[in-house]
Structures are given as C-alpha cells and as structure tokens.
Computed example of a mutant assay.
Amino acid sequence: MKLQREGAVEFEAEASGPGSGPGRAGGVFYNPAMAFARDLHIALWRKLAPAGTTLDGLAASGVRGLRLMAEAGAAVEFCDCSPLAVAAIRANLSRNSLAAEVHEGDLLEVLEGREFGALDIDPFGTPARFLPAAVRAVAERGVLGVAATDTAVLCGAQPRACERRYGALPLAGVAAKEIGLRVLLGAIAREAAATGRAVTPLLCYVEGHHLRAWVRLVPGKSPPLRWLSREMALYDEPARGRAGPLWAGALGEPAAFPDAAELPGDAASPRRRRLERLLTTLHAELPGPPGLWDMNEMARAVGRGETPARERIVVALRARGWFASSSIFHPLGIRTDAPSDEQAAAVQSL
C-alpha cells in the first residue's frame, strides 16, 4: 500500500484507477475521485454537527471517518469486514494521532442492537441490502447517509432489477438520475415508516457515477410516495410508463446547506469551486417540481435548429412568470413548472 493524503489526513491505501470503481486496486481500496464527495460530507458535518457517534459503515481505508474526525471534530467509529482494512484503519488512526473504535465484521451484524447519532453507508454498487438495518440503527433525529453506484439500475437501463432491489420502476431520459435518487429516497422512506418514523431530506445530489442522500429520521409519517410520468406529471397510482413509487418532495433543506466558511480546502482550488457550483445550482432548483425537461426537445418542438443556451431559456421562462432553473442532474435538463405551450413560447422568444 502507498501513503496517500486527502484533506487534513495521511493514510495508507491502494488508489483505484481513473474509473468509478475499485478497478485493479489491490489491498485496501481508496478512490481519489470521491474526494469531492468527502469534501461535501465534511462541510455538511460542520454545518449540522450531528449528535452522538457517526459510524463509517463500509470504511475501507477509513479516509471518510478520518477526515470527519480531523476536519469536522466528529466522534467516529469504523466498520469493515476485511481484516486487512481493519488493520489499515487502526494504523491510519495512529498515523494521524486519532483514536476510535474499529469493528471487524459484517456491517449488518455490527448494527444489530446498536444505535448511532449518524451512520454513513457507501458501498460499491447497491446499498439496498443495508437499508433496513441502517434505518433501525440511527437514533431519533439522527442522520443517515446513503450512497449508490448502481446507476444502470436506478437510472433506467435495468428497470426489472430496480424493481427487485428498490421496489420501484425508474425512467430513462434527462431526468433519469434525479428519478433514481427519488427512488432511493422512496426506499429509505419505506424503511423509516416500518419503524414509525419519517425522513427529512437534508442534502441529496448526484455527482459523476454516484447518487447520494443524507436524511434525518424524525417522528411522524413521510408524505405518500408517488409516480412520475414521462410528461413530468405526478400521480397517486402506478401506470405503464410511470416511474415510482418515489419521493416527490424536496431533495434538501436550505438550512442544512453548508455555508462558504464551512467548505474545506483552498477557496481557489478547482475542487472547492466545483463544490460551490453544485451547492449553488442545487439550492436554486430545490423549490421546483420533480422532473426535468430536455432543452433540446424544447427547441425541436418549435422547429429551432440550434438550441439556445440553457441559462437563456431559464431567464425567458422566469420572465413569463414561471419557476425555472438549471440542474445538477443533467447538463441538458431544465426544471420548470411551465406547461409545454409556455416552454415553446419562451424558446421562440429567444
């Protein structure tokens, strides 16, 4: 293994290749491409300061938990089923003059009978099998973070597999990643309902190959899950061509979004600027309706050979009195409550 550095910590691990998964990395897995996601986790923990202990549930090298301890002052425990990973985490804690409990074993067994103030699960692939135990192990008003990298399943390429894993059908198109995230949230909400609790999404996003949701588990009932059509209309019942059941509410709480002072890293660094752009765009689209419209399809519908710039279409829709924003979920996506005729009029005005 090689010595790596990320944020304020040093640790030993084998870096993966340039792709999205472990690739040919041997030993203890570490994906440098996910440093952006860990930066956002640090910022969110600085903002929320979750009570109690955070469990880094599938820790590998432990870099996520190490950074939460060193950069956000969090109390963290670690879990991994690999003896090699557990040994590396203990060595990496020592290297950074940190102390924490490290559990060796299957996460589902470690969670049995335990309760944590916050829990993060970031598997390679689907988190589906961990969701029931993870929800049960989070304390009242605690925070659960869930990542998924089975995007082919959640985003429309494998609908039957999505139905088996998440109990819902996805939808292809520009809204595919957003809908995949809403399907994941719907699965978490159903597990929370089984414990008599509701979920409050705090910050949910898609970046690269992974979908991530942070939710707070609170007393009460979540809003009913719904179905979304290809025309971005919500329904209370399933039908052919509709995605769902899925979470139809907001994908975050503005009050939970980190401020600039809470973001890690140099203000001029490319990663920090990317993080600021993502949060700014996501914040702007939060009040909008579920689903996205394809800007190229908007242009084709009115016979435009060249699609105007997305921001120009957004400004034109707002000028006509409609909600409109760009989106983090697809570079061609526009979030708006404008009906098709108003979309056409906005594009024709440009």
Score class of each variant (00 low, 15 high):
89 I>D: 00
161 A>E: 01
45 W>T: 01
13 A>Q: 02
217 L>H: 12
26 G>Y: 08
187 A>Q: 12
218 V>G: 04
95 R>L: 14
231 E>T: 15
147 A>K: 04
315 V>Q: 11
58 L>C: 08
122 D>V: 06
191 E>K: 13
223 P>N: 13
81 C>W: 01
165 R>Y: 02
8 A>F: 05
181 L>Y: 09
123 P>L: 01
144 L>Y: 14
241 G>K: 04
214 W>Y: 15
187 A>W: 08
321 G>Y: 02
51 A>M: 02
268 A>C: 11
222 S>G: 14
274 R>S: 13
18 P>I: 08
13 A>M: 01
198 A>M: 09
58 L>V: 03
191 E>D: 12
136 R>V: 14
285 E>Q: 06
247 W>S: 05
192 A>W: 11
161 A>W: 00
222 S>I: 12
129 R>G: 04
100 A>C: 11
211 L>Q: 08
40 L>C: 10
240 R>N: 05
60 A>G: 07
113 G>I: 13
319 A>L: 01
89 I>Q: 00
38 R>I: 07
87 A>W: 00
272 R>N: 10
112 E>I: 05
165 R>K: 12
65 G>V: 07
272 R>G: 03
137 A>D: 14
347 V>P: 03
68 L>T: 08
146 V>I: 14
120 D>H: 08
161 A>H: 01
8 A>N: 13
36 F>L: 15
65 G>T: 04
347 V>A: 02
247 W>E: 05
348 Q>F: 00
278 L>K: 07
295 M>E: 10
84 L>Y: 03
35 A>F: 07
99 A>R: 12
271 R>Y: 07
4 Q>C: 15
35 A>W: 06
295 M>V: 11
177 K>P: 01
338 A>M: 07
67 R>D: 10
188 I>W: 12
269 S>F: 06
292 L>E: 06
40 L>W: 06
297 E>W: 04
347 V>C: 04
157 A>K: 03
170 P>V: 05
133 A>H: 13
201 P>T: 06
131 L>Y: 13
81 C>T: 05
271 R>L: 13
341 D>N: 04
41 H>L: 15
270 P>K: 09
81 C>S: 14
108 L>R: 12
308 P>T: 01
144 L>V: 14
123 P>N: 03
208 G>K: 05
43 A>C: 07
139 A>H: 03
43 A>D: 10
98 L>M: 11
65 G>D: 09
279 L>N: 07
157 A>N: 02
18 P>A: 14
261 A>V: 13
109 E>N: 13
279 L>R: 08
58 L>E: 02
285 E>K: 03
324 A>I: 03
202 L>E: 11
47 K>V: 05
78 F>P: 04
121 I>C: 05
223 P>H: 13
220 G>K: 11
197 R>L: 12
299 A>P: 04
45 W>V: 01
116 F>K: 12
223 P>C: 10
270 P>G: 10
131 L>R: 08
45 W>H: 13
48 L>S: 05
135 V>F: 11
257 F>Y: 15
132 P>H: 10
348 Q>M: 06
32 P>W: 00
67 R>K: 13
130 F>H: 15
309 A>R: 10
88 A>M: 00
321 G>R: 03
252 G>I: 06
150 D>S: 05
222 S>R: 11
172 A>T: 08
232 M>E: 15
327 S>C: 03
100 A>N: 10
281 T>C: 08
256 A>N: 10
241 G>H: 07
164 R>N: 01
